[in-house]
């Protein structure tokens, strides 16, 4: 998509945040190892890797998403229409696929018998 706006600022911001998180993780690597070893005595420490994983997934996930986008790698569509919400719960012969897309590859009907 050559005319699409590239999220350079967001990429840089999330990139720096992600880099900082990794720098902190490895600066305090020994502390994280010690906490892991102490988990058997202090069970609540199990939360540390879980919380760390969530935090990293947020910042690094946003960074990687913006990173590829800023390089021009984008999905083939941007909007999704809910399908068959009001159409009752029975399968219909012409029900489009949930999340049907406007790209050629995505336009395929589900042929329910």
């Amino acid at each position: 998509m050559p005319h699409a706006k590239r999220p350079v600022t967001a990429t840089l911001l999330y990139g720096v945040a992600s880099l900082l998180l990794y720098a902190l993780l490895f600066a305090y690597a020994d502390q994280f190892v010690t906490w892991a070893e102490q988990t058997k005595e202090h069970k609540s420490l199990f939360l540390i890797p879980v919380v760390v994983a969530f935090v990293f997934s947020y910042f690094h996930g946003a960074f990687t998403g913006h990173f590829w986008e800023s390089l021009g790698l984008r999905a083939a569509k941007t909007s999704v229409k809910p399908v068959n919400k009001a159409g009752g719960k029975a399968a219909t012969a012409s029900s489009p696929q949930s999340g049907q897309r406007d790209n050629p590859a995505g336009n395929r009907p589900i042929t329910q018998p």
């Binding site: 993780l25 994280f32 190892v33 199990f46 690094h60």
Partner: peptide, 18 residues
């Protein structure tokens, strides 16, 4: 959560792969 309770999650390794 199960493995973290046993203290065997190496968060450094996990985050590098992530």
């Amino acid at each position: 959560i199960l493995y973290a309770l046993d203290g065997v999650v190496d968060i450094r390794l996990a985050m590098i792969i992530l």
